[in-house]
Design a protein around this nucleic acid. Structure first.
Length: 365
DNA sequence: AAAACGGGGAC
DNA sequence: GTCCCAGTTTT
């Protein structure tokens, strides 16, 4: 298309990309979505907001009820917010509904009720970012803007086999560049729908249907044989490591002191080993907190346990208790747990592991 | 059980 | 600027 008039493009691939995609769209794309007939800015806008975080099939009945009740932008702007949210209920992310209503009122106040055609004015409306603004202007007015929703990100990261997580700033910038490069000069409306349709129906998150994909030949992820390796997952947050000392306190090499955890928080309500900070002396700690006299401490191998939000490095210490204290035993927060006839109380996994290791050591003596 | 999703708002 | 969150669906 763009190579007419002898114009030499530096990178002919994007045109090829669009041409193939549009050819596929003519045959296999979605041409009968409710917001395509009739297609006006208000309906396209409404559909794009509803489609954020929500799939087409879920959106359609909501869209129809919404435009039945609010046929025009002015109807929406003059409606009570409660009515809007009522029609939104079930769609989730109710801030979208609030922003939609607020934006409608802004358009009435600032743009005479006409949906703005300037991308900066559109992006300034609540609930509309760069991608949604581009999608609306492309579909409603045929303006050439890139879009970059989740579908497009998936298609592009696969097509270019892009390393890195798309949420990362530099990766997102690259994606916008690729998205704009891939956008043709003609048939913007169809192209915008086409790339979203491809992502939704062919280049799906799992089990992509590469065999019917019009971009298969040039898709780097396909050529590498691993389309589902892209987009790369969000890197797990670097989670902190906390260190604690767990005490295996026994008067008789059979019973071990367990302490019940508070009802909320980590291991809520479970019975765990008493702990002391890593930097303190266990002998002094036990005396000070529980009036337990202990001796012959020996170090057990350290243990690592991973939670969703931190690692726990456990440095266990075993010790003999010289005075199985009445005070500790009286508290229903503590028990002398018989390791030879274990009862059914809940123990955290690493505590189970430690008790097993501790018993092995006892038996070796 | 975990990941994904686009924009807003907190920091 | 960057990070985190919202609610529901999908895997």
């Amino acid at each position: 298309m763009g190579s007419k008039h002898g114009l030499k493009l530096k990178n002919p691939m994007p045109n090829d990309f669009a041409t193939r995609l549009l050819g596929w769209f003519d045959q296999h794309g979605r041409h009968d979505l409710p917001w395509q007939h009739p297609r006006d800015a208000y309906r396209v806008w409404l559909s794009e907001i509803m489609l954020q975080q929500t799939q087409v099939n879920t959106v359609i009945p909501y869209f129809q009820r919404f435009v039945d009740r609010f046929p025009t932008l002015t109807d929406l702007a003059s409606a009570p917010l409660d009515d809007v949210l009522h029609l939104w209920s079930g769609l989730g992310y109710y801030a979208r509904g609030r922003n939609l209503h607020k934006a409608a009122q802004q358009i009435v106040a600032q743009h005479q009720g006409e949906f703005p055609r300037d991308i900066d004015a559109v992006t300034a409306l609540p609930g509309i970012g760069r991608s949604t603004a581009g999608a609306i202007l492309a579909q409603a007015f045929g303006q050439r803007h890139a879009i970059l929703d989740g579908n497009v990100k998936r298609v592009l990261t696969r097509f270019h086999a892009m390393a890195g997580w798309p949420g990362q700033k530099s990766i997102e910038a690259q994606l916008w560049t690729h998205a704009l490069d891939a956008t043709p000069e003609q048939r913007i409306t169809d192209y915008t729908q086409a790339i979203m349709d491809l992502g939704a129906t062919v280049c799906t998150r799992s089990k992509p249907r590469c065999s019917v994909c019009p971009l298969q030949n040039d898709c780097r992820a396909y050529v590498l044989g691993k389309p589902t390796d892209y987009p790369q997952r969000k890197p797990r947050k670097a989670i902190p490591t906390k260190t604690t000392r767990m005490l295996l306190l026994s008067p008789d090499n059979v019973h071990v002191l367990l302490q019940q955890r508070p009802p909320v928080g980590i291991w809520g309500g479970l019975w765990s080993l008493p702990e002391c900070p890593i930097e303190t002396d266990p002998i002094q700690w036990c005396d000070h907190h529980w009036q337990l006299q202990i001796t012959t401490t020996n170090i057990l191998p350290p243990l690592k346990h991973t939670f969703s939000h931190f690692h726990l490095a456990i440095e266990p210490v075993a010790a003999q208790v010289l005075n199985p204290a009445q005070r500790v035993m009286d508290s229903d927060q503590f028990i002398w747990y018989n390791t030879q006839t274990p009862d059914a109380r809940g123990l955290p996994k690493p505590v189970q592991t430690l008790l097993a290791q501790w018993q092995q050591i006892r038996q070796q003596r």
